[in-house]
Nucleic acid binder design. Sequence first.
DNA 1: CCAAAAGAATGATTTATATCAGTGAATGTA
DNA 2: TACATTCACTGATATAAATCATTCTTTTGG
Lengths: 234, 234
Amino acid sequence: MRHKIECTACTSINCFVKKYCTGEYLDKISTQKNQNFYKKGDYIFREGNTMLGIHFIQQGGVKVVTPNLNGREQVVRIASDGNILGHRVLGNDKYYFNAIALMDTNVCFIETGLFRDSCMSIPDFAYNLILFYALELRRTELRVKYHAQMNIREKVAEAFVYLNDVFGTNAATKTLNIELDRQEIGDVAGTTPEQVSRQLNDFENEKLILRKKREIQILNVKGLKNIVREYKIE
Amino acid sequence: MRHKIECTACTSINCFVKKYCTGEYLDKISTQKNQNFYKKGDYIFREGNTMLGIHFIQQGGVKVVTPNLNGREQVVRIASDGNILGHRVLGNDKYYFNAIALMDTNVCFIETGLFRDSCMSIPDFAYNLILFYALELRRTELRVKYHAQMNIREKVAEAFVYLNDVFGTNAATKTLNIELDRQEIGDVAGTTPEQVSRQLNDFENEKLILRKKREIQILNVKGLKNIVREYKIE
DNA sequence: CCAAAAGAATGATTTATATCAGTGAATGTA
DNA sequence: TACATTCACTGATATAAATCATTCTTTTGG
């Protein structure tokens, strides 16, 4: 059993609460929040379940997925340290997606009422939340565009650019800080594991990446980005 | 030249400002806002242009589009009376999409500074804006899911359910309150005009719709919704 | 009112991707 | 170590949708 990390002691630099919530409300959140630990594969929440509050990833990685009709899962979003989770359902009562830990992950949970009170009491917190939503919305709509227009090669390239953005690589080895099987990569890219294999093969031949079983070294991010036409999430 | 409709005199029942903005800020917005009239086909804003404020559709219809790589346009969103426009770019300086009038449309424009001040000063306004964003985000992510998973038949059915939601039908004739050509329907559905023709043919044979040149009567919304599997934007 | 242009409909062909099937490699287990 | 299981790879086939081509219909302009 891990001990709870208080907001004041938290090292998560990207945490929205830590950044914009101040004074008594930060204290309140710090004392009233729950913190849970999840192992790889654990569900943080499930589609259809009742939504009671907002989650913040203290440390780790999470995929937000929705089952598609071929028995596969489609990845809607990938989130890591400091990211907000479950913010889509604010104002609603049910989760619309599943959130699954991609690695060992620590998640803070703030009950809706307290979160609303913080928004109502700290204008700057509320306004920055609005800006955050605007950014998320823009990213998501660009994803609509991409998924509608990209071919397989581009989709797989985009998946790796995305994973690289969210998790980054080990500075020394250039190895991606997350290991996924071909199926999971396919879920992110929106294609089948077979196509992922073929594309990885191509990318390796083009010296964009290097495979060591499931470990993947990103040799040339720029090259991958070039494959993704008109890529312009800021 | 039309005369400007003040917020107090405005009949737009769904307008976000009118609903949640109160007191002095509603007055300020009413006096400081600009109001512009656009004819069908006019651009309200263009991709890449500098973003100076938020738009509200007082009356009419607008499509938010992005050019795709085959020279077509992909419809990201359709908006009508009372809807917010350009909220995706709040906190940014450039528009990411084009907004084009689908019919004669009246649009209110509120400069970013005034809008931010209103958010900061009226917690309820800010919080409801957050809820609005959460809903938009959910809808958009569901659209990601749909576009990734639906076949042509389902996409075209979904396009009509969507158009029906946004514009509705004439109560007496059941005619959809918007006329689009096959190309434009294809842009909404994410397919080609040829496929739209084929699907409309099918739908007519199934007594779901009835075509009169460009006018379309929606005979059976329920039936169209059934085609869209797992449709659940509340 | 007729001619020209634009749009809609429909069949034929091509193309991209998913699916299927088989083989090989890695991993875990008795 | 051998065996079983899972996953990755790769070629062959099937399929859905885009594209192309043609005809038919509607709209527009002189």
